[in-house]
Nucleic acid binder design. Sequence first.
DNA 1: CTGAAAGCGCTTACAG
DNA 2: CTGAAAGCGCTTACAG
Lengths: 341, 341
Amino acid sequence: MTDVGAPRITIHEVARRAGVSHQTVSRYFRRIESLKPATRQKIEAVVSELNYRPNPVARSMRTKRSGRLATILPSTPSLLHSQLLGGAAAIAQAEGYLLEVVTIVGDARTRADRVLELAANGGFEGILSLSPLALDLERSPVPIVATGDYDDQFRSQGELADASVVRNIIEHLVSLGHRDFLHIAGPQTFTSARNRKLVYETTIEELGLRSYGVADGDWSGQSGYDAVQGLPATCGVTAVIAASDQAAMGAIRAALERGWRVPDDISVFGWDDYDMGRYATPALSTVAVDRDAQGREAILKLIATVRGEEPPEPSHDPINRIIIRESVAPAPRRGAQDTSS
Amino acid sequence: MTDVGAPRITIHEVARRAGVSHQTVSRYFRRIESLKPATRQKIEAVVSELNYRPNPVARSMRTKRSGRLATILPSTPSLLHSQLLGGAAAIAQAEGYLLEVVTIVGDARTRADRVLELAANGGFEGILSLSPLALDLERSPVPIVATGDYDDQFRSQGELADASVVRNIIEHLVSLGHRDFLHIAGPQTFTSARNRKLVYETTIEELGLRSYGVADGDWSGQSGYDAVQGLPATCGVTAVIAASDQAAMGAIRAALERGWRVPDDISVFGWDDYDMGRYATPALSTVAVDRDAQGREAILKLIATVRGEEPPEPSHDPINRIIIRESVAPAPRRGAQDTSS
DNA sequence: CTGAAAGCGCTTACAG
DNA sequence: CTGAAAGCGCTTACAG
């Protein structure tokens, strides 16, 4: 089982058996059209008999192309990262690249240094970061694409951090009579979290609504719980928009413990459409995000850049879909009264 | 930014500038002790000035060691896989290996073929599979370690599929007066799921308890929901042990919809300690699993095999920890009456 | 359309 | 302790 040293078949051996030169075998594997059918067949027979495949290391040595891309994973990956990775890995494979996973620990500065080190000496043709990166990408010798990145250079990657659906959520809640809102934000190192907060604040202002404010959160249930626990009893908030399903669950828990009924007294929205939210009581209203598609688009963009091609037009299929469940209902009369004051 | 063709510094250039031969520079990087301090310093100065690192492709070409391990990820990865991967990637990195992620789609047969193909020609020194594999590992030219594997060859990897805690859960429930159980199993392609079911059935029998049976599940909330929806009203079950938190949430949902109070009428256990379960109402009793440690142990085993060393003794730290929350309570009198009959 | 030569950037014996 | 030679398995011009 560990007989790694089994004599490797070389291109010369294949060439010898097929009665051609080793360059011709090389052409066969590079799918060069000009091969004579007869030659091609002879090679094909030997290749399938020996189950020979060219050594990718030797090829990469010669071509200076490694065919390898790196994915930077945070040290404590979440479901989100799995799903992004699943989409990205499938595309990478289909496009003939191998995706290598690298976890990076340490503070933002250390992580940035390590990524640059990888970019310079890792033998990768490109890097896809699934976590925020505090890095001037111009300094990298190979292309880097980051999702949820630290600074704003990827804000144009609208589909990766699309927060416009926050406005739709607020509008829906307004149609149910809500006027007093609270946002439980995600960590502001994530573009997606920053964008949701931004859209929340903008929409509140544009529609002339009241916001009790934005609670700092970190996606976790605890942060949602703390945010609602910390609300003054008289704040009048009737609708909470959390940046994650976990935070929403925490918020609901805190509300119930304070004797506030959900959704009768207060409506709560989550984000991510985790399986458990659908079966919770009350069932969680949320935003379904096509992470797989996000991962695919991110890696397609990276591969295009690596190849020096124009990045593909991002798909205009909606990546976010609002799902209304039991945790959302018309605003209570109290809320309506506040509005009339 | 895409200037990949920047002239690469070679070992010869470093050697020239340091006034030594390129072999000596090679020795420097292979940390060969015998270098004279003066020589070492000269090299060090040039290396840090040029920020030179040996080309790993060339090294691997020569040594026939790629330093690369593959991880097989299912096409729809879950949080579990993220966490396993996080643990595995950290260790791989620390041990000097790169972990490459490969997703494999198709039926069990296709996947097995593809893994063998990777093992033979992927240039990997070993393979870690995070999903079941229907494969005779003896046929692989490089070591393969699989978690949750298809057949029984990894049952000895107790720590990866440790189900003994199922017995502890049942004993706890018995101490609360429960006698009538239901198990909502995970997909039986997973060793972990099969083991939990096995321990469940064995314990029920050994302790002389009653089991309404084992419901087939697939980890999902829906499968838990269906299992409890399908229970006859008179089945007498007072305790449900689900193979996942999602299934447990589904089970609770179904129970509530049938007018059964949780935990007053029926107690429910989940598995995985998802963040959301802690904030659900009732808060979910569950099993916290150290997936990170599982990932670490799996990759350590793989690396040891690759190196031809003895696999490390699996840690005896408990990987599973039972967490009792609101979804579990003493059996209702009905249950107690049944017992006395 | 196919073959002989050179070389990618290292490491591994082998001398000295 | 350090240097000259050979070679890992391919691909890339260059001939023919």
